[in-house]
């Protein structure tokens, strides 16, 4: 039963990650290759504040989301007007740097050893009650995030973001502060990533730098593309398909012994890489996607 809980919790957390990335990439067309950095900031902030400084759990989560948002703000302000390709490279560099900071600032982050003893929500109620209650909390927050994104998607704001993605200079010519909106989207998406990171830390109760490699960013891209970029329900489906694959292949490892454990985990990432390529080539609109993105693709060529 614990295992089922964990699979669902991971599915929900990746849903949340995909929702935040969808706001950035799907709605606005911002390519953030350093997404994991904001997840890590959220996770570490909350873990350190609650473990080392004994902050209450909710304050830790809020601080995690806030600090992730705060970190993205100057980055966005400085670099978002450079153009999508440069921004992608810059953010990739940022996530490498964040990882180095976590690894090297041992006094603050406990370095490679990681942080243990992070509390689960409702830990006082004992393991049998705390797991399902914590899961419910994560589910509620994920649902709230989905609702927020849905609201944005169906508001004039969402319409404007799609317009910016379709043609930024046209939006500027109509008096829209496109740079401001892109920074806003970066900040909100980063806050969501930070919250998801905090929830993750408090679910697994132990975090270390190797859990925040660029693979997390890439997994989120997969979840989003699998479900359909720019769609509203897509991230949920994509995230759960991804988690079922990842966790399922771990379970399979116990029964199939063709390859060594090392090879099996490598194979898993090879399949993920291959899936990403095949999806982009054959179904860029996602498994669940309507043919919508194919048209917006054409319009993006014009710009």
């Amino acid at each position: 039963m614990t295992y089922v809980y964990t699979v669902i919790a991971f599915g929900l957390i990746y849903t949340m990650l995909a929702l935040g990335l969808n706001l950035q990439m799907g709605f606005t067309g911002i390519i953030n290759f350093g997404y994991v950095a904001f997840v890590a900031i959220g996770a570490y902030t909350s873990a350190l504040l609650t473990v080392d400084l004994h902050w209450p759990l909710l304050a830790g989560w809020a601080a995690g989301a806030a600090l992730a948002a705060l970190a993205s703000y100057p980055l966005g302000l400085l670099t978002i007007r450079l153009g999508g390709d440069y921004f992608a490279v810059v953010t990739l560099g940022f996530s490498e740097l964040a990882l180095l900071v976590v690894l090297n600032e041992r006094q603050l982050t406990h370095g490679a050893i990681g942080i243990t003893g992070i509390h689960r929500p409702f830990a006082a109620l004992g393991p049998h009650l705390s797991a399902p209650l914590a899961l419910l909390t994560i589910a509620a927050l994920t649902a709230f995030t989905a609702y927020l994104i849905w609201q944005i998607g169906h508001s004039p704001l969402g319409r404007l973001l799609r317009a910016i993605q379709a043609n930024e200079s046209a939006a500027q010519a109509l008096g829209k502060n496109t740079v401001g909106y892109k920074v806003l989207v970066l900040v909100v998406g980063s806050a969501i990533a930070g919250l998801a990171g905090a929830l993750y830390a408090h679910w697994v109760q132990y975090i270390s730098p190797d859990q925040f490699s660029p693979d997390v960013t890439f997994n989120t891209f997969i979840a989003l593309i699998l479900g359909g970029v720019g769609s509203l329900l897509g991230p949920v489906i994509g995230a759960f398909v991804l988690i079922f694959f990842l966790q399922g292949s771990i379970v399979l490892q116990d029964y199939v012994h063709i390859f060594s454990a090392n090879q099996q985990s490598a194979l898993r990432f090879m399949i993920i890489g291959l899936a990403l390529v095949l999806l982009i080539v054959f179904r860029p609109e996602g498994i669940m996607g309507r043919m919508k993105s194919r048209r917006s693709r054409r319009s993006a060529d014009v710009s």
């Binding site: 990439m25 067309g29 390519i31 290759f33 999508g84 390709d85 992608a88 693979d215 890439f218 891209f221 593309i225 390859f259 090392n262 090879q263 490598a266 194979l267 898993r268 990432f269 090879m270 993920i272 890489g273 291959l274 899936a275 990403l276 390529v277 982009i280 080539v281 860029p284 693709r297 993006a300 060529d301």
Partner: peptide, 28 residues
């Protein structure tokens, strides 16, 4: 080759996929 003419984002992400496939192919 199949992605020529598509938005840059497609090529970007495809190249992540290629990187993952090859890197873990080497580890494999």
């Amino acid at each position: 080759r199949y992605l020529a003419g598509r938005p840059m984002l497609n090529l970007f992400i495809a190249s992540i996929g290629v990187e993952l496939f090859l890197r873990y192919g080497v580890i494999f």
